[in-house]
Design a protein around this nucleic acid. Structure first.
Length: 440
DNA sequence: CCCCCCCC
């Protein structure tokens, strides 16, 4: 006999609930004047309601791996306390803390003991425009574009954050930006353009547009096995997402979406990069020459510092940004290559992530090969020659002394999808000639 | 006992 979540209170400790885990945070550590430790928290749900539970220190270690999102468990002997509504979006006056007595047991019934599935109130992307700032949104879309991993320090809290912006599109012919944070951002692989299902994302208003942000209590599922996902996949793979008309998010200069197609010749003719802000465009190009000289540098080993270190000899490397000496360094890539489209050739620069992606080796492997194994380096670099890619480029004039040079930096690389690229070419042909405008 | 979810 189990108890409904809605009946839990601090005044009664003899209960067992049967609940589905709807979300789970990563392990987080804290350190403040009152002490330090680690914790994770999870959201639980049954037919009667929902509640947040947090496991600290020993309980964090004991239960973290066992607790799986979507599974149903029996929980007992947790401590109940009033929820701090300031921090909780769940509909419950209380929250739970795991104790030394807490017991958790997987419910192995095929039907999960009748506990309802997580409900997704899926909203078409087009409808997010009409929703209020900070509202919670469940939606599903194809990750059409994926931005680079970005790190920055918050000016208010002085903390380092990592984020990555995705662009989701759906059959409402709309696109919206979704921001991932921390490990979700670091580990995300968007190159296969997966289906993304999210629950409880928060709306952020910015520059007159709206975007979504994955926060605490939000859930993201990649390629979920649900009918909506399969429908979207079919729609997108048949060109459904090619001409998205409605941008729910603001078009920012450096935004990850609505990158314009352009040839190198047009980019020159239109004087791209001459303004205060960089310009962005994408083109299909073939790799002609990849320079091995200065294709890497020895960088500060700190994970968030990529500054070049000074070799002090005696296996000591100085980072001037960290003002520290290290016994080691890490390799970072800075690869210059000449690429060409059908109008002209240009030199472009790839930094670490795009360099690794194109060379299909880690910066460590590339650096070691270049320093110790020229044959291996040649093999790695020559494999890139004459391959075609979609390059998303950042274009900006840079001044060196009295010289102004137009510099192209590779923001991201997508393998050439012939189907999608041909569709773009056909569309251009139609616009130029008016021929074929009534057919697809 | 956390409680930050950020930025342009």
């Amino acid at each position: 006999m189990t108890h409904p979540i809605s009946s839990l209170s601090p005044y009664q400790n003899k209960w067992v609930i049967k609940a589905r885990v709807t979300s789970k945070t990563g392990i987080r550590t804290w350190s403040n004047p009152r002490g330090e430790g680690k914790l994770f928290s999870m959201d639980l749900m049954d037919e009667s309601g929902e509640i947040r539970a947090t496991a600290f220190k020993e309980q964090c270690d004991k239960f973290y791996d066992m607790i799986q999102v979507d599974s149903v468990y029996f929980f007992s002997k947790c401590q109940l306390k009033p929820a701090n509504k300031q921090f909780s979006q769940l509909d419950n006056a209380y929250e739970m803390t795991f104790t030394g007595e807490t017991a958790v047991q997987l419910c192995e019934d095929a039907d999960d003991g009748g506990i309802p599935d997580i409900k997704y109130n899926l909203v078409p992307i087009s409808e997010v425009s009409g929703m209020e700032n900070k509202a919670a949104v469940d939606t599903i879309g194809i990750c059409k574009e994926v931005g680079e991993l970005q790190a920055f320090t918050s000016r208010t809290t002085n903390k380092e954050f990592k984020k990555r912006d995705l662009t989701l599109v759906d059959m409402s012919n709309s696109a919206i930006s979704l921001t991932l944070w921390g490990d979700d951002a670091v580990n995300f692989d968007g190159h296969v353009q997966p289906v993304i299902l999210v629950k409880g994302t928060r709306i952020n208003e910015f520059n007159g547009g709206k975007s979504l942000s994955l926060g605490g209590g939000s859930i993201m599922k990649i390629n979920p096995d649900i009918p909506e996902a399969h429908k979207l996949r079919g729609w997108f793979d048949n060109g459904g997402g090619d001409n998205i008309a409605n941008m729910v998010s603001a078009r920012t200069g450096g935004g990850s979406f609505s990158t314009e197609w352009m040839t190198f010749k047009d980019a020159r003719a239109r004087n791209l990069g001459a303004g205060d802000k960089p310009d962005y465009f994408q083109c299909k190009a073939v790799v002609h020459i990849v320079k091995q000289e200065n294709a890497f540098y020895r960088a500060c080993p700190q994970s968030d510092c990529n500054k070049k270190v000074v070799d002090e000899g005696n296996d000591q490397y100085r980072c001037e940004r960290c003002n520290a000496l290290y016994p080691n360094f890490k390799y970072r890539l800075l690869v210059n290559m000449s690429v060409g489209d059908w109008t002209s050739n240009r030199w472009v620069t790839c930094f670490n992530e795009t360099g690794e992606q194109l060379l299909k080796h880690t910066s460590q492997e590339v650096g070691e090969a270049l320093e110790n194994d020229p044959a291996k380096a040649e093999e790695i670099f020559s494999a890139l020659n004459f391959t075609s890619h979609i390059f998303k480029l950042r274009c900006k004039n840079e001044v060196y002394g009295d010289m102004t040079r137009n510099k192209l930096t590779v923001q991201s690389v997508v393998p050439l999808n012939y189907k999608e690229y041909n569709r773009h070419l056909l569309k251009e042909l139609q616009e130029l000639t008016g021929i074929g405008s009534s057919s697809n």
